[in-house]
């Protein structure tokens, strides 16, 4: 199956912000935006859904902390109790530093792995660069051409309004 993609290249930050907002307001479907650096306010302009990674991060942190507390309790109070300075076996203050570290480890490493999974960045994946300039000094906006509402002429005019330096239509294979 394939879909038609409309790509518009811009040279300035305010143009890409402007066209992202205008395209969203015109009801066009923005596939993605490529920029050489993080542009503040771009995801709001394009109406992208906020990332759900923080929720995954939070759950993984809780999981790591919970597992560690259980493990420490099991080792020090159940499986192999050792008397340390006459303190009770299940002395929670002693568990806190390690629990904290394992929580950070789970949340940090787990979130990076989750990011790789959601963005399909497997090891050995080949880079797919839509336009050479986006790694240097150009901004690229990709719009999917939907059957009913899409009018290439109007979209071209929109691109020109925001000083597009280059516009291209292409066929993209989708899995």
């Amino acid at each position: 199956m394939s879909r038609r993609i409309f790509m518009s290249i811009h040279e300035r930050e305010e143009d890409i912000l402007g066209i992202a907002r205008a395209a969203r307001e015109a009801g066009l479907t923005i596939v993605d935006i490529y920029a050489p650096y993080a542009v503040h306010g771009l995801d709001q302009a394009a109406g992208f859904r906020p990332s759900r990674l923080p929720i995954i991060c939070f759950i993984l942190g809780l999981l790591g902390a919970g597992l560690k507390v259980w493990f420490e309790f099991w080792t020090t109070a159940i499986d192999w109790p050792i008397d340390v300075g006459g303190k009770p076996w299940n002395s929670w203050p002693a568990f806190v530093p390690v629990t904290f570290e394992v929580m950070v480890l789970f949340a940090g490493v787990g979130t990076v792995i989750a990011l790789f999974i959601t963005t399909k960045l497997w090891p050995g994946k080949r880079a797919k660069i839509v336009f050479d300039g986006v790694t240097d000094d150009r901004f690229a906006l990709l719009i999917v051409e939907q059957d009913a509402t899409f009018e290439p002429g109007k979209v071209r005019m929109l691109c020109e309004r925001f000083n597009a330096v280059y516009v291209e239509e292409r066929e993209e294979e989708t899995a």
């Binding site: 290249i9 040279e11 300035r12 930050e13 305010e14 912000l17 336009f131 050479d132 330096v165 280059y166």
Partner: peptide, 20 residues
Amino acid sequence: MTAETPNVSSDEMPTHRHPG
């Protein structure tokens, strides 16, 4: 990339301006 890439020389570039 097969299509011709736009090539704008630096003196043709409009002056950089932040929004607003």
